[in-house]
């Protein structure tokens, strides 16, 4: 009985002192992300100035003013990659979105700075976006399941996914 109690107490102490399974931090450097997004070679960076209707559309999707006048992207044929910052609760999350042929190819969290909500980095969440396209009113054509305790981070990633699809469509149509 005493031995069981000791094992139980050690287990509880272990739970109490164990750090979280994941945490905020820099998960991917920009070049690592781009090498993964473009396995056959990273194209040169291009910049897109956000002006007029495009800026208005981006800000409508984000629900706030976009911080900056231009965004950087990488494009090779029908595939593009966007690295965008969006605030979850108080600090920006750096999110990489790869788009191929108008559908999301991958979503990666490059850096998460807040103490809560970092679960959005895991594939069980990011894989939900794969093959998502813009539907009516520039919303995603599928439902993204949330994560308990990470609602604001989930919303931020979802908004950035919509913006990346919109921007991809814009540069594709500009050809």
């Amino acid at each position: 009985m005493r031995q069981h109690l000791a094992v139980f107490l050690i287990f509880v102490a272990g739970l109490a002192f164990a750090g979280p399974a994941g945490e905020a931090g820099r998960y991917l450097e920009t070049d690592e992300y781009l090498n993964a997004a473009f396995p056959s070679g990273v194209p040169a960076a291009q910049v897109l100035w956000l002006k007029g209707d495009l800026r208005a559309d981006v800000e409508r999707l984000l629900g706030h003013r976009f911080n900056g006048l231009r965004v950087r992207y990488w494009r090779d044929g029908t595939r593009s990659a966007w690295i965008l910052d969006e605030i979850g609760k108080e600090l920006p999350i750096t999110i990489g979105i790869a788009v191929s042929g108008g559908a999301i190819a991958s979503v990666d969290i490059l850096e998460f700075r807040e103490s809560r909500g970092w679960e959005v980095r895991y594939p069980f969440f990011t894989d939900q976006f794969v093959n998502a396209r813009l539907g009516p009113n520039d919303t995603l054509d599928r439902r993204i399941d949330g994560i308990t305790g990470a609602t604001m981070s989930v919303d931020a990633v979802t908004r950035v996914a919509q913006v990346a699809l919109l921007l991809h469509e814009h540069v594709a149509n500009a050809d």
Binding site: E29, T30, D31, E32, V47, N67, G68, L69, R70, V71, R72
Partner: peptide
């Protein structure tokens, strides 16, 4: 920044 101080873009050159 633009000439009148508006933020344009932050470029992370860490890996470059």
């Amino acid at each position: 920044f633009t000439d009148d101080g508006e933020f344009v873009e932050a470029i992370d050159l860490g890996s470059r």
